[in-house]
């Protein structure tokens, strides 16, 4: 059942992005940025946590989960250190994704040539 939920949620997020892309002049860069902000907003009020329970991996694959993880890590340290925790824990959960993206694209860019 969770596979169906994952399909529906991830599909609807992509569908909304496609509708925005087709009907406005925004570029894909604008849309991914917009979705990160939306994800951070939804997690600020604990809505995204409920979606994660409902849709599982389907809610962690779209870029909205990046905003969700940013504020989730920040809120964990806020509980321990107060307002200074906002600066400390922001990258706690997202660091793996950023480090992976940097190292993989650095190493692989030596192996492959751009083709056009």
């Amino acid at each position: 059942m969770i596979y169906l939920n994952a399909f529906i949620f991830c599909g609807i997020i992509c569908l909304i992005g496609q509708i925005i892309l087709d009907n406005t002049k925004l570029t894909p860069g604008h849309i991914t940025t917009l979705f990160v902000v939306v994800g951070a907003f939804l997690d600020s009020f604990d809505i995204y946590d409920k979606i994660v329970l409902w849709a599982g991996g389907g809610s962690l694959v779209p870029i909205t989960s990046f905003g969700h993880l940013l504020i989730h890590g920040a809120m964990d340290t806020v509980n321990n250190f107060g307002i200074m925790g906002l600066f400390m824990g922001m990258f706690d959960l997202t660091s793996s994704g950023i480090v992976a993206a940097i190292t993989f694209s650095f190493i692989l860019s030596f192996i492959f040539q751009p083709r056009d």
């Binding site: 969770i2 992509c14 992005g17 509708i19 991996g57 389907g58 694959v61």
Partner: peptide, 19 residues
């Protein structure tokens, strides 16, 4: 829209399968 819905949904299923 239909293509992006299906491909996006398939990505979600792949994510859940990998987890």
């Amino acid at each position: 829209s239909l293509i992006s819905f299906i491909v996006g949904g398939a990505m979600g299923i792949i994510g859940q399968l990998l987890i």
